[in-house]
């Protein structure tokens, strides 16, 4: 729901609106020649967070830094790096924040425990409900 992309954009954009006029990085808006590599790059880009945008992936953003990041992703995929290695490279620099795909860790385990807990809780509710009946 794009409820109204409003004031923040305006209020914040005014002071930092300064943008360079340099050409984009070569692979910011250019796809890789090999469709299989491009598909890999695209899938990875959809899960990386644009650093200066308000919650967009670098696959959905016109910000310059998003273009620079796409360039990094595409050139590294082209050089044969695996998507997960590139994700790690970025996470070494920006932490978990840069990746929309939470990794299982001390801070994020509840996210992964949640579905299990819900399955168990849901099962218990149903079981409790129907056992009494039978």
């Amino acid at each position: 729901m794009r409820l109204l992309l409003a004031f923040l954009a305006l209020a914040l954009a005014a002071p930092v609106i300064a943008q360079d006029s340099m050409p984009d990085a070569p692979y910011a808006y250019k796809q890789l020649e090999d469709p299989a590599q491009e598909a890999k790059a695209k899938a990875l880009m959809e899960t990386l967070r644009c650093l200066t945008c308000q919650g967009q992936s670098i696959a959905d953003s016109d910000a310059k830094i998003a273009g620079d990041m796409r360039h990094q992703v595409r050139t590294r995929i082209k050089a044969g790096e695996s998507p997960e290695a590139i994700r790690r490279w970025l996470m070494e620099r920006y932490g978990d924040y840069i990746s929309y795909k939470p990794e299982l860790s001390e801070t994020t385990w509840p996210l992964f425990a949640l579905p299990l807990v819900l399955v168990l809780a849901g099962g218990l509710v149903l079981f409790g409900r129907f056992r009494r009946r039978a």
């Binding site: 959809e46 899960t47 967070r49 992936s57 932490g95 978990d96 924040y97 840069i98 990746s99 929309y100 795909k101 939470p102 801070t107 994020t108 509840p110 996210l111 949640l114």
Partner: peptide
């Protein structure tokens, strides 16, 4: 609800995470 709010939980510990489509 939990996925949306989770970044607030970790921020209380000073860690910033993103929970997005891959989750």
């Amino acid at each position: 609800l939990v996925g949306t709010l989770y970044p607030l939980v970790t921020e209380a510990y000073g860690v910033r995470v993103s929970v997005g489509p891959p989750y």
